[in-house]
Design a binder for these strands. Structure first.
Length: 191
DNA sequence: CCCTGATTCGC
DNA sequence: GCGAATCAGG
């Protein structure tokens, strides 16, 4: 794969939007994130518009041989929020009323406050991965384990999914699928 | 361990 | 110019 105009365009666009190199690479296909980063640098747009913060940028030191070269080209651009809204994480749902079986083990209805319609596909997916779930305990939760609760916390039939989370999200892909619905999951019921 | 971007250097 | 390998930080 070569860097055609279109691919470069997409690269620029995504980079400008703050997408990570790996995401860009994935989107483009046929290239690794290294390639993307390399290209980004060659294009001279290494620094993104004053992003607040993360990035390990500006680090050219402690390296054996390296001529410090500062190449900063201010690139004006508007940054539009990608609309990544944090969703309420169920996490530690403490309060378990005296009632027994609140949640049928087979069908998790976690954080959704209001009745929420979840696409059947997503649900099916969840049920499937549920089998593969690592079924970890609260103590075993880490930043990278899916924190989707399954079962009744009041019983020992309770566990967390524990599969690898989707980066930046508290859940694995399948659970992200049901936790974050596009917005209107309603199939327009023709009326 | 997962991810990020940065840099170097052989091709 | 390209990008894998490597580095460095979170």
């Amino acid at each position: 794969m070569s860097w055609t105009d279109e691919r470069v365009e997409l690269l620029k666009k995504m980079w400008g939007e703050g997408q990570s190199a790996s995401q860009i690479a994935k989107e483009l296909g046929g290239v690794t994130r290294n390639a993307v980063i390399g290209k980004v640098h060659r294009l001279g747009l290494s620094n993104r518009a004053g992003s607040g913060g993360s990035a390990t940028t500006a680090k050219a030191d402690a390296k054996p041989k390296a001529a410090p070269k500062a190449k900063a080209e201010p690139k004006p651009q508007l940054k539009t929020e990608p609309a990544v809204k944090p969703a309420p994480a169920p996490e530690t749902k403490a309060a378990v009323p005296a009632r027994k079986q609140i949640i049928p083990a087979g069908q998790p209805l976690p954080p959704q406050p209001s009745a929420n319609e979840i696409s059947p596909e997503a649900l099916a997916k969840v049920n499937e991965i549920e089998k593969k779930a690592k079924k970890i305990s609260l103590m075993e939760l880490t930043e990278r384990t899916c924190k989707w609760p399954v079962g009744d916390p009041a019983t020992d039939n309770f566990w967390f999914c524990g599969l690898p989370v989707q980066q930046g999200k508290p859940y694995c892909e399948a659970h992200v699928g049901v936790a974050f619905q596009p917005m209107s999951s309603r199939r327009d019921r023709r009326r």
